[in-house]
């Protein structure tokens, strides 16, 4: 499949796309405003994947390599659209009201993702990058053109807000002393 993609073989490219696109769309969806935006990100990301396929060195998992490209594409799209200018400042975070209808309850994984998506853009971006994608605050600061301290503080607030949402939606239980809050999950 890889060799086919390197030869620009359409069938191989489609096979690779079919294999990884569902999960990658899930990644895009966490960053995007809606599904349409997520699909646009996915499209742009996979075009980069195929055009940069020769740079893949077989040194790690292919999925991880594709995922990094997709995440960077998502960030670039968000930056291009200047979405971060609308993000909520850390000092105003307390006033944010999370509407109940923004948090659907269908399946557990989807619930968690939708809760993440209900966060303000700046929060969820940092949360996605740090907690889920595994980037360091230093890397996030570089990617988003913000201070490293800003990244840390936004993550702290994002996590706190997300926890409140998850508890409110009864997806997790509020931790008690010396108990694991994940018992109900």
């Amino acid at each position: 499949m890889l060799s086919g993609c390197l030869r620009n073989n359409a069938t191989a490219q489609e096979a690779l796309y079919n294999r990884f696109s569902p999960r990658m769309l899930g990644v895009c969806y966490r960053f995007a405003k809606n599904r349409e935006d997520a699909e646009d990100m996915l499209q742009e990301g996979f075009i980069k994947v195929f055009s940069q396929m020769h740079q893949y060195r077989n040194e790690g998992a292919l999925e991880g390599w594709i995922r990094r490209i997709i995440v960077h594409t998502c960030i670039n799209v968000l930056k291009k659209n200047k979405k971060f200018s609308d993000s909520v400042d850390i000092t105003n975070a307390h006033s944010i009201h999370i509407r109940e209808e923004m948090i659907p309850s269908i399946m557990q994984a989807k619930q968690v993702v939708e809760c993440i998506r209900s966060l303000p853009l700046g929060y969820k971006t940092v949360l996605n990058l740090y907690a889920i994608e595994g980037y360091s605050h230093k890397e996030i600061a570089f990617m988003l053109d913000i201070e490293e301290s800003t990244s840390r503080s936004q993550y702290t607030r994002a996590k706190s807000m997300l926890e409140e949402i998850l508890i409110r939606k009864k997806i997790i239980q509020k931790p008690k002393k010396k108990t694991n809050f994940l018992g109900a999950v």
Binding site: P22, A109, L127, I172, V185
Partner: peptide, 13 residues
Amino acid sequence: LLKEKADQFSMYP
């Protein structure tokens, strides 16, 4: 928890 649940999530384009 976040990472696990987020990784489980996928959508068909």
